[in-house]
Structures are given as C-alpha cells and as structure tokens.
Design a protein around this nucleic acid. Structure first.
Lengths: 228, 228
DNA sequence: TAGATTGTTAATCGATTAACAATC
DNA sequence: TAGATTGTTAATCGATTAACAATC
C-alpha cells in the first residue's frame, strides 16, 4: 500500500489482471504449493515480476523477502479485494442463448462470488423453463423481485435494440451496477456502475492483426530492389 | 497517418474503440446522416473529440475541416482497417452453451466479417446436431476440415481443463489466430495470434468497485473530529 | 553468510489531452 | 467572412519497467 490514504482505487489494468493471478494461485494451492514468488508467477504468466509485485500490493498483502507470499494468504487477499470472498446476488435479463449460457455457468458462484438468482424474459415460451437450475420469470416480475431480495447487480443479455430499456428497468428497480453483454453504449445515471463485455472490441484486436499480417508486407521504400 | 511507414500497428486501446465508432456510424447511416464530426461522435459516446480524431486517423481516413467525415466513407475505412469488409471463416471447438451461443449469433458475419463455419465437440450426443444452422462435427474431423478449407482462425469454447489441448490441436492443424473464451492462459508458439475473452477480468472491475462502495468510507484520519 | 526476493522510489514509455495553425 | 472543424505538435498524465536499499 503506497498511499497513506485507503487505496483510492487501484489502476484498472491491475484490477483486470488480479483474476489471472487468482486462477494460477488456486491451481498452485490444489497442487499443494505453499509459497510463491513474483518471479515464479511472472514466468508462468509471462508478465513482468515488478508489475506483479505492484499489482499484488493493492490488495494489502505483505510478502517476505527471500520467501515470497503464502499462497492461501495471497488468495484470500485477492478475493477480499475483489469482494469474491462473499457471494453477491444478481438478476439477469434476457434468456436467449447467451443469457442461458451465463446462467448455466455454475463456477461463477464459487470462483467469482457471483450468484445469478434468476433470469427474466418477455418471451412467454421461455417463462417457467429453467436454465442451470435457475428459474426464468416474466419481465414484469423483475422490479418486484429485485426490491424484495435487495439485489443491486443486474446482467443484461438482451439484443442490442432492447438493451437501453432493459437498463432503464433495472435502474428503476434499484439496481446499482450493471454487467452489460449487449453491444450498445448505455445511457445511465452517474451513480450506476457499468461494465461492458464487448465481443466486437476483442475480435477487432484479432482481426486487425490478422488483416495486417495478410497485407502485402510494407515494402522497403524505393521500388523494386533485389538484395544480394 | 502520422508515420511515413505503413502504420506500424495502431495502439491497442484505439483498435478496441474502433468497433464502438463503427456501431454508431452504422446507426447514423441508417438514420440517413451523411456527415459527422468528431465533436458529435464524442458527445454520443462520451469520449474526448481529439482522441476520436487520432483514433480515426489510423484507418487512413481524411476528413474535411468545418465539415467532418462522410459517414459511408468512414464506415468503409474502419471496416477495411479491421478487415471486416471481407468475411473470414472460422472453426469453433466446444459446442457447450457458450459455443452454441456464439454459433447462433448470426450478426458476426454481417457486422464483424466473421463466418463460423462449423463447430466440433467430442461429446457424441452433440454430433450431428446443428446450432444456428451450423453443423457440429466430431473433434477428429477438425484438422481435416481446417486444412481442406484453408481456415486459420479458431475459436475455443471448451472448459478450462481442455483448453490447452484444444489449442494444441488447432495449432497443429494450421490455425494462425485463436479467439479464446476459456479462462486459461494458453501456451502457444510465438507466431500464433491469441486474443482472450476473460469474463473474470471484466467482472473483477465491477465487483471491486461495488465492494469499494460498500466498504466503510475511508474516515478522515485523526479519530473523532467534529468540523464546524 | 550470501543470495533471493520484497517494497519503493526513479526513469521510461505510451496514451490521453491540450494547444494551435491550416482550411473549407 | 467568421466559425467550426480537421490534422498535428506539444504537454500531461498514468502505467510499466528499471534500479536499489532493506531483509529474511
């Protein structure tokens, strides 16, 4: 902890890397490993050891020179920083194939402290079905359930066209943070947290590199020239 | 284009934002809008106009002072930069719920130039099924089809435990770029492109902020002190 | 002890933002 | 023309990497 204040908020890139460390650490724990150094983590994940040390510092963990960190202690520190030591309930809107895939991913609860309680959809043919043991309710019930269960995390898995109104419904029902899988930039009150999962962004990285590869390699200037 | 060389490669954050611009521009086009300024885009997306201008520059587009950019021209420039003006074939391994959700998302082809040709799975009960009109083949057929169709883009949608061997199979079958949805850091040859979609990273941002919110607000140091 | 590793400060790198001349 | 907007250079900001003293 480099601040005398309580950690402002950690750099975003750091936060995004923490789950990666956590994954490795859990693996090491299963393998019976008790201590681990940044050097070792760095080798495994092909990252810079100093960066890892800085990243881990945001969790408040203290390591031992010459030794490293105690694996279970480090796991606990990261989990606590992310809030993954406790389970947070969430409601999901949109029981299409993506929504049901998210519902069916049981590991969210154990690994990421995320418990998706139920899904909502306005397609009556889906109502009453379950997906991954989770019930699918009609959209009208959302506000009621959200308030009654004091749930403030919402997941949007509806088509782009319906995303904004879905967000509005959530906000009106007391939702304070939204995990949005629809490819839209949502208009939200300042105090509602939003995190977008944008597959296009990710694909763009891959396809632009792939495209760059295919392109006629930037010829050394000066026209035809045979090296020998 | 600020380089005299052919654009090295654009900054990663820029590449990740391009699809967002593209989405807005397509919307504007549908609405019949012919020109657009960075100022306008910036307002819509709540970004900095200068940043947008720099971002768009990587595509080689040239705007007109006082006017802005021609919408169709700008769309074409971004699509070309990303390679989304042409369709790229891809093969997907893992026909679980996530895999089938990806298969079923028809918009990939029209919007992102991505054509998922078929899926592969080693669960015999899934073989012969289709998902979003795409056939599901046994895993053994992967190499054959990949080579025969000259496909070099692979999508991994298998459980974490199977991801590395899946990647190995892909690489051995001539795949040059992998879009990986499994929460694992894969070990790959240097020359194989990899892009990971890591839901944990994304969730970490949301849950760490949510956790920070819940925490007892960092009290101004110095114990009980009443200001007046 | 000597060597490895942490924690932390300083240097570097890259991306964002500001400033401003060119221009339609 | 005057004003808005582009393209580009310079300044700022923040994250990564390097350097190094402290220490088990």
């Amino acid at each position: 902890m480099t601040d005398n204040e309580l950690s402002r908020t950690a750099p975003l890139p750091t936060v995004r890397r923490l789950p990666q460390y956590l994954r490795l650490l859990r693996l090491l724990k299963v393998r019976g490993r008790e201590v681990v150094s940044c050097t070792h983590i760095a080798e495994e994940l092909k990252l810079d050891p100093t960066q890892i040390r800085k990243d881990l510092a945001v969790t408040g963990i203290i390591g031992r020179p010459k030794v490293g960190y105690f694996v279970p202690e480090l796991i606990a520190a990261i989990e606590e920083f992310l809030g993954w030591n406790n389970t947070v309930d969430a409601l999901l809107i949109g029981a299409g194939s993506l929504g049901r895939a998210l519902l069916g991913y049981e590991r969210f609860r154990e690994r990421n402290g995320l418990n998706i309680v139920a899904a909502f959809d306005n397609d009556s043919s889906k109502i009453g079905q379950t997906a991954g043991d989770k019930p699918i309710f009609p959209l009208e019930k959302f506000g009621d359930l959200a308030r009654r269960m004091h749930i403030h995390l919402g997941i949007i898995a509806v088509p782009a066209a319906a995303a904004q109104e879905t967000a509005n419904l959530m906000v009106g029902s007391g939702i304070r943070a939204i995990w949005n899988f629809a490819p839209v930039s949502l208009d939200l009150p300042e105090d509602v947290l939003i995190e977008n999962v944008d597959l296009s962004s990710s694909l763009a990285v891959l396809s632009s590199r792939l495209t760059a590869l295919m392109k006629p390699t930037p010829q050394p200037e000066g026209g035809t020239h045979v090296a020998y």
